[in-house]
Design a protein around this nucleic acid. Structure first.
Lengths: 248, 248
DNA sequence: TGTTTGCAGTTTGTAGGACAAACTTACGTT
DNA sequence: AACGTAAGTTTGTCCTACAAACTGCAAACA
């Protein structure tokens, strides 16, 4: 966190938003904690003490606890009755299940995207691809994580199904740390980028069957890779890398 | 609710459970409120006042609010900044999106079930089918709702993917009221029951393709029916029925 | 010596009250 | 009749407090 003492920052630049709905304090806290978990600032399996989180975020315990309930529902933390919140740690099998679910949902989203082909969504997807290309060589892993998430978000949005998009967003949050670690291998990234570009073209071409096939293959590939990362204890397998170097 | 004044009941028959995990007060409250929403005791679009809910459940405001956060994350209620929680009311388009998602998830679950064919899961599925048959003529709509939910839960469980099962459970909660209303038409129920039996047989036979096909067709059929119910204002379309006769 | 029992210390679960901010409604004015 | 203002109500947030439960350590026992 960057705002040290008083309240959460980010509340100052409200700049005349009228339709902005969820600006409650608890949602800001939830966003902060979510980011901290996603980027590995809080490690999987780590015990979180409410007292410390209150000091970190600068909010009171009731507000913090409401935020924790949201994160709990998202599966990012788990709470045992009198032992407090713990950052969710995935087992290899759980990663397989999660990626199986992602395969189904995301290939369907991509297929729907290819079927609808709404111009605005296509433009948005192209924009995220361009950003990925710009970052390909110079971007930090955190940059790449965000850019990749934007790409997947654009695909989910292009499906035209808000529930599907929301579901996928939650799913991506649960595996973001794994992706983040995976992004530290630059040579692998080239291959992934090429795949993302190919899949984008299939969508734009409106080839539903090809889109679904490419997507399924892509997710199968990175799924096995994700399992490997978790098996190595949330580290890049085969290296002595301690990974997740203080993202911020 | 049935326990009028002091605390929530259901806490008495703990009977030496050791592995029971989530018995916090807020989870009990969440369960109660969830049931009230699912069965239409709280109508879609209804404003919920925290004060009243506190009196109804007999818990304090902090506990209640934490429970509301969970329900909010499940999509059963929505909260606007200073206007309090509102029971989610689906538009016809939202129903379509929800059922599209259900079609993808549940047909995949059924297909996985047909692929794995684990004996325990098959036995559990048969048991839910038997219960449905027993209730077919004599059961109340609420009985049928629960029995049908058990059937779908058994299918989700048979997929072997806990995340998929959990996802489907949340999805079913969001459309439970629609199903509940639909179950008031007994002649339709016969057809649905026949379909459920056919799909079960396909799973047991291990015919993945047939399973997926049957499931997709089934969900398409009840999806259009669900849309009709919402279009009629959460009433059975074509009748003057006021529906949802005080479930309890 | 190894196991168990008992006792702090700490953390969470729950409760009640309090105050500010914001929305809703009704009323009075122009 | 339309607008602006004021009261009442509800939510958002916070503080304090206490009971329940878990943790760890030390002492007593076999």
């Amino acid at each position: 966190m960057d705002g040290p003492d008083d309240q959460l920052d980010g509340m100052n630049d409200d700049s005349m938003l009228v339709a902005g709905q969820a600006v409650s304090l608890r949602s800001l806290v939830a966003d902060r904690l979510r980011l901290a978990i996603i980027t590995g600032r809080f490690r999987p399996g780590q015990q979180l003490r409410e007292r410390e989180l209150c000091e970190l975020t600068g909010v009171s315990r009731p507000s913090l606890r409401e935020a924790l309930r949201a994160l709990e529902a998202e599966g990012l933390i788990s709470t045992m009755p009198h032992r407090g919140p713990v950052v969710a740690a995935l087992t290899p099998d759980e990663v397989d299940h999660l990626y199986a679910l992602r395969r189904v949902l995301e290939s369907f989203a991509a297929r729907e995207f290819a079927r609808l082909r709404r111009p605005d969504d296509i433009a948005a997807l192209k924009a995220t691809m361009k950003r990925l290309d710009d970052l390909r060589d110079s971007g930090t892993p955190l940059d790449l994580l965000e850019a990749g998430s934007a790409y997947y978000r654009a695909v989910a949005s292009g499906s035209g199904n808000p529930y599907l998009a929301q579901n996928l967003q939650a799913l991506h949050n649960r595996i973001a740390l794994i992706r983040f670690i995976s992004l530290h291998e630059r040579n692998r990234n080239r291959l992934t980028f090429a795949a993302l570009r190919t899949m984008m073209k299939a969508i734009i071409a409106g080839d539903e069957a090809l889109t679904e096939q490419l997507w399924t293959e892509h997710l199968a590939a990175i799924g096995t890779r994700a399992r490997g990362i978790v098996e190595a204890g949330y580290r890049l397998p085969g290296t002595g890398d301690r990974s997740t170097p203080s993202a911020a």
